[in-house]
Design a protein around this nucleic acid. Structure first.
Lengths: 221, 221
DNA sequence: GTCGGCAGAAGTGTATACACTTTTTAAATT
DNA sequence: AATTTAAAAAGTGTATACACTTCTGCCGAC
């Protein structure tokens, strides 16, 4: 089955949603998207379906697709799951840690720092999330990496909506600390830092929204 | 967007795959499925796409859909994630345990026992998996329940392929023990039992396959 | 006898057509 | 003026058509 065209549309819409060029709740009319991308509704529908599986949009029968507006309650559940998963992941990571893995993490943290300093909001959110996915991938567990990736992208909307620049800096600092604890093979400290880190991110979700766009062509251009 | 017809097809195919009426690797031709269900390829394609997200089938560009044949290595990764997640879930469960929750779990275990005794292979696999999902749902974390559900269905194929009746009995016994430890609020014991249980399930995956069908109508009838 | 290649068949990928549902608009009634 | 209703517009749901790719089987070359 062909996926390249569809996945292009998925990526474009994902970016637009995650960067808040499309407001939560905004209607995504199939024909308008089809016109914009120069394809038929068929491909747009495939993309929309895929996005609905990622929880970035909501599909209502016979009514259409709408940009998701995940509730804070839902985000809290997601964070609860992440704490469960990542506490144990951190333990496992310490047990099989190697210099190469630490190096990879530290490089990643440096990239984060650059994005935070440039105030590249979308980029920093992606990179801050990727730190956790990276850990999973370095452990060699693809399944873990994928699940974690889904969880993180699932609340990317929320994080983006609610995370301030100072909170992002704080996250980056905490990643530095976690990487150090991992390098020192200090399991208990690493686990505690990770847990605290996730609690901090969750706590720092505030509630001031930005002004959004409803015009599809504008948002995707 | 309409989902009822599509999800009917998804369920039918899921059952057929999970009950091994469709062999891992079997081709799922769109037109044949469309004829079988009396719908157009459009709906079949939607269903196939959904199944591919659940990892029950594999989609190859321009070649079509094939029943997935998850590797044992992949199953091991899935179990590793489950151990991480369920250890912490068990801890959290003990902290908020109530008599009603224990009652619900014990009722569930009784149902399992019935299915195991009747040698209802598909039913018992579903119920044995649901025990874990049930725990998550009883904790009130929908997200956790969904993720766990996906993980479990993801290796349902493997479990079904490889789990013997005696292993199923063993699993049921272990669920009884876990429920008891939860009722006693013995956190450490519950966590240890859960962890051991998952290791046992994983260990008991053997490698004798059954004879499969390739004929779609036969398998789905 | 085996290998390569060339129709023809079968199957997937995308666009379009059309039925049916929801939303909008505007007129008519109270 | 507010509310109801009806018709038109817009939009989604499914089927079908057609282009293009992959597979199959047969023929000829070696």
């Amino acid at each position: 089955m062909e996926t390249s065209t569809t996945s292009f549309i998925v990526k474009a819409l994902t970016r637009a949603i995650v960067e808040h060029r499309l407001q939560p709740g905004a209607k995504l009319a199939e024909q308008k998207l089809a016109d914009h991308f120069g394809v038929s509704r068929t491909l747009v529908r495939q993309a929309l379906f895929q996005l609905s599986q990622n929880r970035l949009i909501r599909l209502e029968p016979a009514r259409g697709a709408f940009v998701a507006a995940p509730s804070v309650a839902e985000a809290k559940q997601v964070f609860a799951v992440r704490r469960m998963l990542e506490a144990e992941m951190t333990r496992a990571f310490v047990r099989d840690v190697t210099p190469a893995k630490i190096r990879a993490l530290k490089e990643h943290v440096a990239q984060e720092k650059a994005a935070v300093e440039q105030e590249d909001v979308a980029g920093r959110t992606a990179l801050l999330g990727d730190f956790h996915v990276r850990m999973a991938a370095l452990m060699g567990n693809q399944v873990l990496a994928q699940i974690l990736g889904e969880l993180i992208s699932r609340c990317a909307l929320i994080t983006l909506m609610y995370q301030s620049t100072s909170a992002a800096e704080h996250s980056n600092d905490e990643h530095v600390e976690i990487a150090r604890a991992l390098a020192a093979r200090d399991e208990e400290r690493a686990v505690r830092l990770m847990n605290d880190h996730l609690l901090h991110v969750e706590e720092n979700l505030t509630f001031d929204r930005k002004v959004p766009t409803n015009d599809i062509s504008m948002a995707l251009s």
